[in-house]
Structure formats: structure tokens, C-alpha cells
């Protein structure tokens, strides 16, 4: 809670140089990157990262590893397609965006709250099993239900609204849209960490029984965390349906649900930044592995093998993910320097 004591530097002076460089590169990227890079690589990274950061929030701070985040994102995406305009005019209602978006967030949050309430009935490792089972049930349901979810084919031609006369699916606007949403979600997760709710959630993760003995309703906090995480997942889900311009059961299948976990774990599930680092690595591998695999005579499908092995390596050797590796590398370098200078770093 420590309020900053007598700051001797202004807040922006305390942000390391590396951050300023990253921000500058991200903001100016449309000036030097091509459309494919903006739309496919960076856009998709931000979207995946946003969905994964909702898992980081639940797992890293709340200790609840949920495989439902992709389903919740998908439900929000589906709602945008169903309530708003799409190519499937027989089902889509074609409502205005200012009704569609709040409704999508709300419905996804209600779904997340209900599922969360089921999942927190049990603890620990059961959560992962129950959420996996619910995710699968939702996937099969969307595939079989034609009256609402249009079954196997789903919805296509789901486009973002033309706000301010901008086509938000053009590469540069879409890039900035995704960057803005991702930055907001990341900032929100970091900010909430130090709020009463965020602190209480970490308390619940560390010692639920003691939290109850401090006056906290542990179950309600856990369910509320599921509801809050659904907001981030929904942001990602809606951006995803706009990026692909379509949504189908395959978007929310079990492999997709597991990919979100893989992304969060590879980056480092204890820190919000890890979700975006993991997403970037995942997308780079996904996008460029066909070429590389092709040169060695493998089929592009072996991408899954690489991701699986990479995930295994991270879980086995660096539970803090890539960010953890980075920290350790820096710590080792710092130790090497220390004896010479005698000063810290």
C-alpha cells in the first residue's frame, strides 16, 4: 500500500529507458512496418495477449487456472456477430454498435460469473478440469446449435463499425485499435493489482482461510475475479472477431483454449507483461514456422509440435516463463559486475 514516500524524481523519470523505446517503436510502427506485419502479426499478438492477460489476472493473482477465457472471449465475439450485423442475415439482428458492445460485455460477464461460481465450488487442480469440461461443452453446443450460434459454419462478414469515418479494419487503424485496447487492459490489470480488490485477490491466492478470518468472503471474491477477468477476455474476443471478420466453433475449440494457457505460461503467468510477451512469441512462431519448417522439409503443421515442445521446456525448466529467464539472465550479469564495482549493478 506504501504511498510513494518523498519522491525525489518525477513519476516519468522513474520509468526505465527501455520502456520509452518500446513505447516509441510501438507508436510509430505503422511508419515502417508493412500491412501484414501490422494486421496479422502485431494485431493478433495484442488480441491473444489481451485474452491471455485475463488468464494471468485469474491465475497469477487469484491462483485460479481457468481454461474458460477463450470461451468467454468467443462468447463476446459471437454476441457481436449475433446482435450486430453479419453475413448471416437470418440470425444476426443488426443492432447499432452502442447496443451491441455493452450487451456483448454484459452477456460474457454473466456467463463468466455463472461458470466461475461452478468452478470455485472446488479448489485447486479441480478448477482446471472443470473449466476445461465447461469450455468443451460450450464448444460442442455452438457447433450443434443452429438457431443461435449457426452451428458449424458460424458467422462471417462481421465487421467493426465505421466510427469517425475510419475503416477500423484497415491495417493501421486496426493496429492502433488493438494497441490501445491491449494497453488499456494491461494498464488496468497492473493498476488493479494494488487496489483493495486486487490485494484481496492475492490474499485469497496465498491464504484463503486467513482471508476469511480477516472478514473477506473468499468465494465471492473468487467469483468476482472471474467476472472482472471476463471484461479483458471480451475485449480480446471482440477484436478477434473483427480481425477475422468471422467466428465459428473452431475459434473456441479446446486447442484454442489450451493455446491461451500456453501463451500465458510461455510469457510468464505471474506477470501481466508475460501474456503479451508470450502472445508475441506464439504469433511469430505460428506465422513464420511454415517457411522455416518448409526449408527443412517438414509440413507447416509441425508448428504445433514446436509450440508443444516449447511449452514443455518452459514448464519444466523455467516456471516463470520467458520473463523469468530474462530476470535470471540479468541477475547473473549483475552478479558478474558487482565484485568489480562494489556498487549494486
Amino acid at each position: 500500500m506504501a504511498p510513494a514516500r518523498a519522491p525525489d524524481r518525477l513519476w516519468f523519470e522513474r520509468i526505465p529507458m527501455a520502456w520509452w523505446i518500446v513505447v516509441a517503436v510501438l507508436l510509430t510502427m505503422p511508419l515502417f512496418a508493412n500491412n501484414f506485419w501490422l494486421f496479422q502479426v502485431m494485431g493478433w499478438s495484442f488480441i491473444l495477449g489481451t485474452i491471455a492477460v485475463s488468464l494471468t489476472f485469474l491465475a497469477g493473482y487469484g491462483g485460479m487456472v481457468s481454461l474458460l477465457q477463450m470461451s468467454i472471449a468467443g462468447l463476446a465475439g459471437y454476441m457481436v456477430a449475433i446482435l450486430g450485423p453479419s453475413g448471416t442475415t437470418s440470425i444476426s439482428l443488426g443492432l447499432a454498435w452502442w447496443i451491441v458492445l455493452p450487451a456483448a460485455f454484459l452477456i460474457a460477464a454473466v456467463f463468466a460469473t455463472l461458470c466461475g461460481a461452478l468452478a470455485v465450488r472446488t479448489e485447486g487442480i479441480y478448477t482446471i478440469m472443470i473449466t476445461l469440461a465447461i469450455a468443451a461443452a460450450f464448444f460442442y453446443f455452438t457447433r450443434q446449435n443452429y438457431t443461435i450460434f449457426n452451428g458449424y459454419s458460424g458467422f462471417n462478414l462481421v465487421l467493426p463499425p465505421q466510427l469517425f469515418g475510419v475503416n477500423w479494419r484497415d491495417p493501421a487503424p486496426f493496429y492502433y485499435l488493438c494497441l490501445g485496447c491491449a494497453a488499456l487492459c494491461y494498464g488496468a490489470v497492473v493498476y488493479i493489482t494494488r487496489s483493495p480488490f486486487g490485494l484481496a485477490l492475492q490474499g485469497v491466492r496465498d491464504n484463503p482461510r486467513r482471508m476469511a478470518a480477516l472478514g473477506f468472503n473468499v468465494t465471492a471474491h473468487r467469483v468476482a475475479a472471474h467476472a472482472l477477468a471476463s471484461v479483458f477476455a471480451s475485449v480480446g474476443g471482440i477484436l478477434l472477431v473483427w480481425q477475422n471478420a468471422q467466428i465459428a466453433p473452431g475459434t473456441i475449440g479446446i486447442p484454442a483454449a489450451i493455446d491461451i494457457l500456453v501463451v500465458a505460461v510461455i510469457g510468464g503467468i505471474r506477470r501481466p507483461l508475460g501474456a503479451f510477451v508470450g502472445a508475441f512469441i506464439y504469433v511469430i512462431l505460428q506465422v513464420f514456422s511454415p517457411d522455416i519448417l518448409g526449408t527443412f522439409g517438414f509440413s507447416a503443421e509441425r508448428f504445433k509440435l514446436i509450440i508443444g515442445l516449447g511449452f514443455l521446456a518452459v514448464v519444466l525448466f523455467s516456471p516463470d516463463g520467458v520473463l523469468g529467464l530474462w530476470d535470471r539472465w540479468r541477475a547473473r550479469r549483475a552478479r558478474r559486475v558487482d565484485p568489480l564495482t562494489g556498487a549494486p549493478r
Binding site: 500500500m1 480488490f197 490485494l199 484481496a200 492475492q202 491464504n207 486467513r210 472478514g215 473477506f216
Partner: peptide
């Protein structure tokens, strides 16, 4: 029975927050 991953102040602050309102404040 404490919260090992949080600071001393955070522990005490949580205890104060637990018996007051706005436990869910963001």
C-alpha cells in the same frame, strides 16, 4: 498465518480493509 507474498503494510492494510466497506474497490 500470513500472506507471504505481500509486504507488511499490505498485510495490515488487508486486515483493515476486510472489516470495512469497499472491499471490492478497484
Amino acid at each position: 498465518s500470513l500472506f507471504a507474498g505481500l509486504t507488511v503494510m499490505d498485510n495490515v492494510y488487508l486486515a483493515c480493509r476486510g472489516v470495512s466497506r469497499n472491499r471490492y474497490s478497484l
